[in-house]
Write a protein that binds this DNA or RNA. Structure first.
Lengths: 206, 206
DNA sequence: TCATAGACCGTATATCCATACGGTATGGCG
DNA sequence: CGCCATACCGTATGGATATACGGTCTATGA
């Protein structure tokens, strides 16, 4: 298979699982406890073989410094956690994390933004932005800091609910447009609060 | 602000940054080295305050067991790394990780799939699937294991290149359709290799 | 002015932790 | 059969690590 024995694969999976769960790599002792080994040398043996086979790395003498080496790892980027909201109350949301309905974790490269701690995600309802190929159920990532440019898709606050619109200007005056001929909404962008610009979109199979 | 002093925020950021970079939380000594502290007690003091304020957790006596507590953390899920391909050669790709052009890291909940180690991502070129609101530049996540059902969007191998099509059946016979009237492709699905079913989509601002 | 809290220093010390040394048993392979 | 790799056991040992105790200095607010 991978050049790994059954035991070695078990240990590798345990390491990955533990790291995902607790954020910390297990110590030799904890590995031994999990597998019922009564000797730490057994653990050290397995880890040494895994290291020799190139699937594991560790800094000598450093506690819990194991790292699973994957070919994809060289391509990995930082990930960010984005809170998912249904509707967003007015103003810059303060205690945002409290009311989050969900959490999207995604790497910043795919997202295409710098790690901005104020970004968030919004679930799209309705087909008012169908002309920009944004459908109901899509998750859009909103970057509040960004200044909207003409043609940007923005999240705007209308009647206490966040809605997605295209931001446009005519004669220097901004206005919003729904990208659906059946919703010929053309809202003067005066009493409106633009909450941010859409920077990415995630769609999962319904 | 957050109830945290400047120093405390600095330390918290350092912890998060180090954990992202190396996968391991720094030890007291390493924190002291980074900030120029000559006493480990200084570190312990700060960490104790951060713990009392509820933004940090640690298991006593456990090396490098610090964890940054975030309200979003309770909503987090496992993340997976998906290799990104431009075009995929025939057959079930074996040494897939070698030829990956990029890496998408995303949590499995958002993706809507179980952690399948054989899933991968594909960059869409062209507008042949515009009818399903998939545009050029989109990243589609493909799950090879899944059996295609009628109406699924599948990645199929045509002329050595992966293309996206809708999988349909007529009279029990499967065929593929491009969702664009300008591409009235109707390919008999006999010599074709269906590589997998689209389970998710990621779009970033161009 | 006293009290309090934050931000540091110096010195232990018990335990955690990786690692070295020397073993046994088993199974595949030439 | 001998050889080798895997998979385990038992016992150190020294450095890594968290943490306790007892301080100093400086703001800031009562």
């Amino acid at each position: 298979m991978n050049g790994l024995t059954r035991r070695q694969r078990q240990i590798l999976e345990f390491l990955q699982h533990q790291h995902q769960e607790s954020g910390v790599m297990p110590s030799f002792q904890e590995i031994a406890d999990h597998f019922g080994f009564r000797s730490l040398t057994t653990v050290a043996d397995h880890l040494r073989l895994l290291r020799r086979k190139g699937v594991l790395a560790a800094e000598p003498g450093r506690a819990r410094s194991l790292r699973v080496v994957s070919p994809l790892q060289t391509l990995r980027h930082r990930v960010v956690d984005l809170p998912v909201f249904g509707a967003i109350p007015a103003g810059p949301p303060e205690g945002r994390s409290q009311e989050a309905q969900g959490c999207v974790t995604i790497d910043i490269q795919t997202l295409g933004i710098k790690p901005s701690p104020v970004a968030f995600a919004l679930e799209v309802k309705g087909d008012s932005m169908i002309g920009r190929h944004i459908v109901s159920g899509d998750l859009v990532v909103i970057e509040p800091r960004a200044e909207p440019k003409a043609g940007d898709v923005v999240a705007a606050l209308i009647d206490g609910e966040s809605t997605l619109k295209t931001y446009l200007t005519r004669n220097g005056k901004p206005f919003l447009r729904a990208e659906n001929p059946r919703y010929p909404d053309l809202v003067p962008a005066q009493e409106l609060v633009v909450q941010g610009v859409m920077v990415a979109l995630v769609r999962k199979r319904q």
